[in-house]
Design a protein around this nucleic acid. Structure first.
Lengths: 360, 360
DNA sequence: CGATGACATGACACCGATGACATAAAGCAT
DNA sequence: ATGCTTTATGTCATCGGTGTCATGTCATCG
C-alpha cells in the first residue's frame, strides 16, 4: 500500500503538499494539484486513517452498540430485527458528515458490552450510540467513557440523552382516528406490564377516549400477555373471549402490537368472527412483514425507526461538536397512523349502537 | 486521554516496558508488572489502536457491508431484516479472534458502496465481507481492493469466495419428510423466476419426488409471484385456485417462502379450506415472526443465517492469515427442517388416495 | 521602486505505539 | 572464577500523516 511519501516522490513535490491537496486546507497551484492527483490515481493511494488520526486526534468514528443489555435471559421474542431501520437512519446522517460508523452487536449477551466499549475506546470513537431492540429502560456501564453517548429506543435512570418512540401519542392518534370513524366500544389487548410501551400505549388509549368524550371502561381492557408461543395462546384467547362475551362487546380491538393482532386474526377466525366485517382490528408497530402481508392488511401505528435514528445521530453529532444539549430529555418521536382495511368505518352508526357488532 | 508515556512515568518505567505488559511479548518482572498495571488502572489507560497499527501495520479490523448492491430500484420487499442473524454469526467469530468488525450499511443504494469501500481501505481493513439480504448474484466493485473478500448469501461471476444457503438441499429434505409423512400429491407455489432461490428450491422439490419414486407433474407447480401487496394477491389466488381445482388436488402445498405461506393461509380460509385439517401448508425460510406466530405454526425450512455467518467469518479469517482457499467455492450451508403443525401426516393412507383431500 | 501582503511550497517536529538492538544483572555450567 | 545463556529493562528510530513555521515568488500599491 502506497504512502503519502510515494505520492510526493512520484509527483515531485513534498509530502506536505500532497497533504494539502488531500485536505484542501491551503491553496495549491493548479499544475501541482493535477500532478499530485495523477500520482495518487496511478498509485491508487488511500490515506491511512490511523496516521491521520495520530496527529489530529480526530478519529472520525462513531461507535454503535446494538443488542440486549441488562437482560440476563435470551428471550424467545423474535427481537433485534426492526432496529436495523434505526441503524440505517443513523448511518445516513453519520455518512453525510464524512464520519464512519462502527457497529458492534452484543449478540444478546450483555457481558460483551464492556469489551465492545473497550474496543471502541481503543479506536478513540468520538461518540457512542446504543440502540435497544425495543423501547425500554437500560443501564449502560458508562464508567470511563469520556465521549458523548446517546441512547435510542431506550432510556436510563441517569438522564443520558436519548431518543424514544412516542408510544402514547401514537396510540392516542390511532384510537382518535378509530373513534372518528364511528367506533364507540374500543377493546384494548395490552402488552405485558413489564414492557415500557405497555403503560404508554395504555395512556394514549385513555387520552383518546377522554378527548373524544367517551367514558373509559375497565371491562374493555384485557391483558394479551407477551408474544410467547403456544403456551400463552390460550391466555390470549381467554382475554379475547372475555371481550367478545361482554353484554356490549367492542366493535374494534386494538392490540398491543402487530404480532398480537396477527394472533387475534387467527383466534377470531377460529371463533367464526370475520375480520373486518364483524370485528375491526388494529395493531401497533407497523411491522410490515405482518401488517402488509396478513389479510386484511392491518391498521396500525408506525414506529418511526428511521426518523429516530436520524434524530439520535444528529443529537450525538451536535454533542460531539461540543454543543450544549438543549433538547428536552427523552426526545419523543411520534409515528403516523398507517390506516389499512382491518378497521371498518362505523360512520353509518351516528350514535352508540347497542347491538355492538356491525353487520356487513 | 492518557498515553503509554503517562503510564510509564507513573509506574517509573520505560514506555517499552508498559508495551511489554500490554502485549506480553517479553518477560516482565513481577513487581514491575503490578506497578504498571496499577498505573494503567489509575489513569484508565486505553491503548490507541491508531498508533499501534502504524507500527505493526495490522489494523485488526474486518469490514462488513450490508444492503442492496447492483439493484437500482428500492424494492417493496420487506428486505434487509434477517441478515442481521448473519451479522451476529460473523461478529461472534470475529470477536473471538480479538478483531473488530466495522459494519457499513448501504441503506439500499448501491452508489454508496464505493464510498464505503474507500472508508474501509482508509481504515486498512484486513478483510471484507459482503452480506446480501437474500440469496442472489451480485457484482461488487472490487477494483483496488487488495484484501481478502468473502460474500455471504450471494455469489458473483468471478468466483469470489462465498457462502450461500443450500436451498436445494433444504427443499429436498422438507419435501422428503412430507412424502414420508404420507403425502403423495404435493403442490408447489414457486417464487419469482428472477430469484436465485426459486430455481434451487424447485430442483430440490424434484429431487425429493424422484428419490421417493413419485412422478413429477407440471400441473402441481404454479407461480406465486413475488411478495407484492394487493395487486399480486389475485395472481396468487389464481395459482392457488388452479391447484385446488385439479381433478386430483394436492394434499399439501409447499410455498416458495413463509410470506407466501402466510398469504396462502388467508386465501385458503377465504375459500373455506381449513389448515391443516383439509390442506397442509409448508413454507421456506423459517422467518420466525411468521412461522411461529401464525396459526397453525408453519412447517418450514430453516435458513441457517447464523451458521452461514460463522462459516463466512472463519473462511475470511483463514484467508487473512494467508491460508489457501481450499473449499469448493460457493460453500453451501443447509438448514434443518422445522416441523410444525401446518403439515398433517397422511400416514393412515397407505397408498395414493384418489379422493385427494383428507377428512379429519 | 521598494515595501507589503497573498500565494505556493518545503523543512521539520510530533502524535503514540512498537520493532530492533543494546545493556545490565542474574543464573548456571565448566 | 570465567564464560555463556536467560531474564529484565531501556534507548532509539520508525510507521504515515499533519501542525507550525520558514521561505520563496509574485502581483499590487503608495
Amino acid at each position: 500500500m502506497s504512502t503519502i511519501y510515494d505520492v510526493a516522490k512520484a509527483a515531485g513535490v513534498s509530502p506536505k503538499t500532497v497533504s494539502r491537496v488531500l485536505n484542501g486546507d491551503a491553496p495549491v497551484g493548479k499544475k501541482t494539484r493535477t500532478a499530485v492527483e495523477k500520482a495518487m490515481a496511478e498509485l491508487s493511494y488511500v490515506p491511512s486513517n490511523a496516521a491521520r488520526m495520530m496527529r489530529s486526534n480526530k478519529s472520525g468514528v462513531i461507535g454503535l452498540i446494538t443488542g440486549a443489555i441488562s437482560f440476563a435471559a435470551d428471550e424467545a421474542v423474535p427481537n433485534g430485527l426492526p432496529d436495523l431501520f434505526i441503524v440505517q437512519g443513523i448511518q445516513k446522517v453519520i455518512a453525510a458528515q464524512n464520519k464512519t460508523l462502527m457497529i458492534a452487536d452484543t449478540g444478546g449477551s450483555s457481558d460483551a458490552v464492556p469489551n465492545l466499549m473497550r474496543t471502541f475506546l481503543q479506536h478513540r470513537v468520538e461518540g457512542l450510540i446504543y440502540v435497544a431492540d425495543y423501547h425500554r429502560e437500560v443501564s449502560l456501564p458508562v464508567d470511563g467513557v469520556d465521549c458523548p453517548v446517546v441512547l435510542v429506543n431506550c432510556f436510563d435512570a441517569t438522564s443520558t440523552p436519548s431518543v424514544v418512540p412516542d408510544d402514547r401519542e401514537g396510540q392516542r392518534a390511532l384510537v382518535t382516528k378509530i373513534i372518528q370513524s364511528g367506533h364507540r366500544r374500543i377493546g384494548f389487548l395490552t402488552l405485558d406490564r413489564a414492557m415500557t410501551a405497555e403503560g404508554l400505549r395504555y395512556k394514549g388509549y385513555r387520552d383518546a377516549l377522554e378527548s373524544q368524550g367517551i367514558p373509559y371502561s375497565d371491562e374493555l381492557v384485557a391483558m394479551a400477555y407477551g408474544l410467547g408461543g403456544e403456551e400463552t395462546s390460550e391466555a390470549l384467547d381467554a382475554s379475547l373471549g372475555r371481550l367478545l362475551d361482554l353484554p356490549e362487546p367492542p366493535t374494534v380491538i386494538c392490540c398491543g402490537n402487530d404480532a398480537i393482532a396477527m394472533r387475534v386474526y387467527g383466534l377470531l377466525r377460529a371463533r367464526g368472527v370475520k375480520v373486518p366485517e364483524q370485528m375491526s382490528v388494529a395493531g401497533f408497530d407497523d411491522y410490515r412483514v405482518i401488517s402488509e402481508m396478513i389479510h386484511p392488511p392491518l391498521t396500525t401505528v408506525v414506529l418511526p425507526y428511521h426518523e429516530m435514528g436520524r434524530r439520535a445521530a444528529e443529537r450525538l453529532l451536535s454533542l460531539v461538536d461540543g454543543a450544549d444539549d438543549v433538547q428536552e430529555n427523552p426526545v419523543r418521536v411520534a409515528g403516523p397512523v398507517s390506516w389499512r382495511s382491518s378497521v371498518t368505518p362505523l360512520n353509518d352508526v351516528s350514535i352508540f349502537n347497542p347491538n355492538g357488532r356491525k353487520r356487513p
